[in-house]
């Protein structure tokens, strides 16, 4: 799917780049703090792993579009094109099923943390649960509520999710929100891929190895040399 990049695509690329940059800077700063300033950034590790999760899960949806997910294409390549297309469509359906099931699972996991109802049903959502234990109060381990120049940009969520009671640490509903968000994006990208396969604009979902683009570049260089 080498279609032109939209503004949304560029946003996702920058998102991945910026999060990886932030992760590196925070971890590096913790080392500097320990040796030069003789303190520790206690929340550094936790914030970094949250950024890590956001980067990978959001990035995974975008990687569908760039056809970067790893897979085995040895069998596909041995097939005649019409049969290959059928296999491709079947594979895309499997991916859509995966994204649907995980979207339900992600919603069910996250919803109660945001004082929202999870869905009923084991395989597929059959309506929302009526009674549940809200977990909006449930805080993360180490990450304090942010304070910037005396401003408390996140304090409003205390009123919305914690009955006005003060959060010492950010609530779990914030980092975990990436799960339903990313699974919805993943579903969108797999449906998009299915359509592209159907229309013949795409021949498979997978890259056979992690360095396909680098190799293309390198091969070009070798040919030029």
């Amino acid at each position: 799917m080498h279609e032109p990049r939209t503004a949304f695509d560029r946003f996702q690329e920058n998102f991945v780049a910026v999060l990886l940059g932030l992760m590196t800077v925070i971890t590096f700063a913790n080392v500097v703090a320990r040796y030069i300033l003789n303190t520790g950034i206690l929340w550094g590790l936790e914030v970094t792993v949250f950024l890590f999760g956001w980067m990978v899960l959001i990035g995974a949806a975008y990687a569908v579009k760039t056809k970067s997910h790893l897979g085995v294409d040895a069998v596909l390549l041995a097939l005649a094109p019409p049969r290959r297309r059928q296999f491709g469509l079947f594979a895309a359906l499997c991916c859509i099923l995966y994204a649907l099931l995980l979207l339900k699972g992600s919603w069910d996991y996250w919803a109660n943390f945001a004082n929202l109802p999870a869905t009923e049903g084991r395989w597929f959502p059959l309506g929302f649960e009526e009674k549940f234990r809200a977990k909006g109060w449930y805080e993360t381990q180490d990450t304090p509520m942010p304070e910037l120049f005396g401003l408390h940009p996140l304090d409003w969520i205390q009123d919305v999710f914690n009955e006005g009671e003060e959060y010492e640490k950010i609530p779990r509903l914030l980092p975990y929100f990436v799960l339903p968000l990313a699974m919805a994006l993943l579903l969108y990208r797999y449906v998009q891929a299915f359509v592209a396969l159907w229309r013949g604009r795409l021949d498979s979902l997978v890259a056979s190895h992690e360095a396909e683009e680098a190799v293309e570049e390198a091969a070009q260089k070798l040919k030029d040399a």
């Binding site: 995974a60 997910h69 790893l70 897979g71 085995v72 294409d73 069998v75 596909l76 296999f87 491709g88 079947f90 594979a91 499997c94 991916c95 099923l97 995966y98 099931l101 995980l102 699972g105 084991r122 395989w123 498979s204 979902l205 997978v206």
Partner: peptide, 20 residues
């Protein structure tokens, strides 16, 4: 894997179905 489902989805989907 062999029909061209990405590795990640093959692992995840199989595990989910098995669990359910």
């Amino acid at each position: 894997l062999l029909v061209g489902v990405p590795i990640a989805v093959s692992l995840g989907l199989s595990s989910i179905l098995f669990l359910l």
